[in-house]
């Protein structure tokens, strides 16, 4: 795992690094610390990163713009900030976790568990997904998403109006940020269950879902039972 810590307080950056090494052990391959956003951006452009620890107030600048850009990327973002009053807002934008300062190793471990255990979800679900396009960042409300489809390391967001957007995160990573109504129905599909009209079973253990607009999606064999129970 490659980690980038963005924090302008040297002692605090050192603390995150130290605790991370303590908690994650050899699961961490490389930790890099950046004291400014420019330095962080440089690093991200050139090196693969899996997890970003981000301080929201760097050198007197509000870090929310950076946060919005970070969550559109393929890696997960964990915010470490003194401004706990902005936690909910950060979660809504799709951060995996929010650590209020000061913090201890236990709290950091919880954040890491959330990162490693793909089945777990964030404390508060996202309300938007940031998508990076060549024109800039686009904020897509989750309410407009009908289902998500895995495409290699990316995720396709299928929207109400028929458009499709590509998100840099994998389906696994995104699922950790989504609210409970989004259900993994297949290894390549996550669906907003509020939009499901019907669950169909075919011979040969083939299953599918019919959405309210008539579209059909495949359902994994292991997921069918769970879905059946949930839908009554």
């Amino acid at each position: 795992m490659n980690v980038l810590i963005v924090e302008d307080e040297a002692v605090i950056a050192r603390r995150i690094q130290r605790l991370l090494t303590e908690v994650a052990g050899d699961r961490v391959d490389r930790i890099r610390t950046a004291g400014s956003f420019d330095e962080a951006k440089d690093w991200l452009d050139r090196h693969p990163v899996d997890l970003l620890f981000l301080d929201l107030n760097l050198n007197g600048r509000d870090g929310f713009d950076i946060l919005k850009r970070a969550v559109a990327r393929s890696f997960h973002t964990v915010v470490i900030s003194a401004h706990t009053e902005r936690a909910l807002e950060a979660f809504e934008h799709g951060v995996l976790d929010f650590l209020g300062k000061p913090f201890g190793p236990e709290r950091l471990k919880k954040a890491l568990d959330r990162f490693f255990d793909t089945g777990r979800r964030a404390d508060f679900a996202a309300r938007y997904l940031s998508v990076r396009k060549h024109t800039g960042l686009v904020l897509i409300p989750l309410a407009e998403i009908r289902y998500l489809k895995g495409a290699n390391t990316y995720a396709e967001l299928h929207l109400e109006d028929g458009r499709t957007e590509l998100h840099a995160k994998s389906l696994e990573k995104i699922s950790a940020l989504l609210p409970a109504c989004f259900e993994r129905v297949h290894k390549s599909y996550i669906v907003d269950m509020n939009r499901v009209k019907e669950l169909r079973a075919f011979t040969g253990s083939r299953y599918e879902l019919v959405l309210d607009d008539g579209a059909t999606l495949p359902v994994g064999r292991t997921r069918y039972k769970v879905l059946k129970e949930k839908m009554g």
Partner: peptide, 18 residues
């Protein structure tokens, strides 16, 4: 305010351990 107070406390925390 949190920025000054919490960052100071976190630094205290780190020095306490280090």
């Amino acid at each position: 305010q949190p920025h000054f107070m919490m960052n100071s406390l976190t630094a205290v925390q780190e020095w306490m351990e280090e």
